[in-house]
Design a binder for these strands. Structure first.
Lengths: 155, 155
DNA sequence: TATGAAAAGGGGTTGCT
DNA sequence: AGCAACCCCTTTTCATA
């Protein structure tokens, strides 16, 4: 489905989405139109989900990142949809992953300060039905933090 | 430092970085030149870190996401820099966060399949010096997964 | 100093070979 | 797939308040 040219294009666009068609065509040894049509197809097929800007969180006042490990009560699986919809609507929640094994979730939460997290934790998160246990840990330095996934060469 | 106009611009650019100056100016009730200069400043100041494309991982063959919680041996803090540099060079590692409290790390790892994770785990990750314990859990569905942080209005 | 208008230039887009 | 022309939009400049 994806050939080596597609993958090269994806790699360069991840580094800088504003690269011009001419430059990109040069880098991948192809022509403007070919590259342009490839990108169109990658977008149509949903390989490229969207084009966005990455914002420095601390520069917009979001200084504290917390990972919250939420364990649900195993008995009532009915509460899971409720948890999910509520969590989706919390702007503080950046990511919410379902983990295998027990019924639990890993949340990446981004807030202004520790006080804001306390508020989020007690007045919003822990109010949701069906939670058994929450373990929070503040993330200090992000050694590596990227949306730039390394696209594998062979499929 | 950032006013309401900056924040509006950031919100629209997160949704679609390719929005034209004209459209963006309309949406935020301003003019092309003002919006253009604001974006320049946001980039100079590092508020906008970069412009990139988000790729659907499964469409490039990366189907398995694993969170690995790595606990280090408390005694020798000397091994931390080694861990960090090694981890940074693993393409499988998408994110590596230092967690507060104990000396430990949370890794978000993206691989082709479970076999690839096993290989990564045994032949690369667990080979690093100074590790006490690793807890891995496969992430199933991502309920929410976004780089679109919700920019807070007031500062 | 900040804004708007308008020129200039570059690059996305399309049709044709 | 590649070339070239077109046209739109970004970027710069300049005049104005």
């Amino acid at each position: 489905m994806l050939d080596e040219l597609d993958i090269q294009i994806l790699r360069f666009m991840q580094k800088d989405a504003r690269i011009s068609m001419a430059d990109l065509a040069d880098k991948v040894n192809s022509s403007r139109s070919v590259v342009w049509r490839r990108i169109q197809r990658l977008e149509e097929d949903g390989v490229i989900k969207k084009q966005t800007v990455l914002i420095d969180e601390t520069k917009v006042g979001l200084d504290v990142m917390v990972f919250a490990h939420v364990k649900m009560q195993a008995q009532n699986r009915d509460s899971l949809p409720g948890f999910i919809t509520k969590v989706q609507n919390f702007p503080e929640v950046m990511e919410c992953h379902t983990l295998m094994g027990d019924i639990d979730f890993l949340l990446k939460v981004l807030v202004k300060n520790v006080k804001a997290y306390e508020d989020f934790f007690w007045n919003r998160l822990s109010q949701i039905e069906g939670i058994r246990e929450i373990n929070s840990s503040i993330a200090l330095t992000a050694v590596k933090s990227t949306t730039e996934l390394t696209v594998p060469s062979s499929r």
